[in-house]
Computed example of a mutant assay.
Amino acid sequence: MLIDTHTHLYSDAFVEDRDAMMQRAFDEGVQHFYLPAIDAEHTQSMYDLKAAYPNNIHLMMGLHPTSVKENYKEELAHVAKQFEENNFIAVGEIGIDLYWDKSTLGIQQDAFRNQIALAKKYKLPIVIHCRDAFDEVFEVLETEKSDDLFGIFHCFTGNIGQAKLAISLNMKLGIGGVVTFKNGKIDQFLNQIPLQHIVLETDSPYLAPVPFRGKRNESSYISLICKKVAEVYDISEEEVAKQTTKNAFDVFGNLTDV
């Protein structure tokens, strides 16, 4: 069994062939799909997809850092309301993104801390988005760290030092299509990280692995990521699938409860 711990299946990129795409993933052995939230505009489409695949789709709730704008407090109120009314598997994806807009750093940090508080309140993991912001994300995590703060560093693209720091802060590393890129770099040190700290993800429709780089990504491609990780660790794909599935369950708990 394979698990896609981060996939935007509700994206408009799948509007033409969503059911066929899901079947391709099932055919590759992918049984569970974790869907991170973006903002209020996408909430209903997430609920609709959960209704269509109740045993396979597992929802997070949160405000994506690139959606932290002037109205972010309204968006955070929406997130809080969803937690009052529904069950979720995690708080995510949350964090800091300075690739697109550095001017919002202050409110991104505020939104990040606010949602970490939600995770602690509901005893849920967090799923972190970090782009061009490792120092800023770690600064928040260091001040908020506690035994009840844990989760996944989604789409990890840092160096080995940053990987070890993330792990020391109770985070698993989300490994996706970047591990197959020639310039991705993480394949150069990943095997120095014990496999129990790794989970697999696609981040579809983004970051498709080789040989589909630059094209639409989809959850069935998790098998290609698994294959590359197996090569990096010099173990079988079955071993990678078994351990990373266990790791996902360790973070998210019993999926059948949600």
Rank of each mutant, 00 (worst) to 15 (best):
V15S: 15
M60P: 01
D257T: 15
Y122K: 02
H197Q: 13
G62D: 06
K81D: 12
F156D: 03
E231R: 01
D147K: 14
F150H: 12
Q162I: 03
N114F: 08
M60K: 03
G176T: 11
I160F: 07
Q196K: 15
P209I: 03
A77N: 12
K73D: 05
L59A: 10
H58V: 05
A25E: 09
A77H: 09
K182H: 06
P125Y: 02
S168D: 15
I128Q: 11
W100I: 00
T7D: 07
V140W: 00
Y10P: 01
L105V: 02
I193M: 06
S223I: 13
M46G: 11
F156T: 01
F134E: 10
F134G: 00
G214K: 08
Q82C: 11
Y221M: 14
K228Q: 14
M21R: 11
D250N: 14
E136H: 01
V210A: 01
P54G: 10
L165A: 09
F249W: 08
I222M: 07
I3S: 07
D110I: 02
L149P: 05
Q188R: 11
F181N: 02
P125A: 03
E201D: 12
V127I: 15
K242A: 15
A241S: 15
G214F: 06
P209N: 04
I198D: 03
F88W: 05
E28P: 04
A20R: 11
D110L: 00
A25Q: 08
I160T: 05
D234N: 15
V68H: 02
K242F: 12
D4C: 11
A119K: 04
F33C: 05
T5Y: 01
L105Y: 02
P194T: 13
L9V: 13
N254I: 11
Y72P: 01
E218A: 06
P65G: 08
Q188D: 10
T7V: 15
I126G: 09
F88E: 06
K123R: 12
P36I: 08
E139V: 00
V229C: 02
K228S: 05
M21Y: 03
T66Q: 14
D132M: 00
G151E: 08
A13V: 06
V127E: 14
V140H: 00
S219Y: 06
P65Q: 06
N191K: 15
T66I: 11
S220Y: 12
L165R: 13
Q115R: 03
M1A: 14
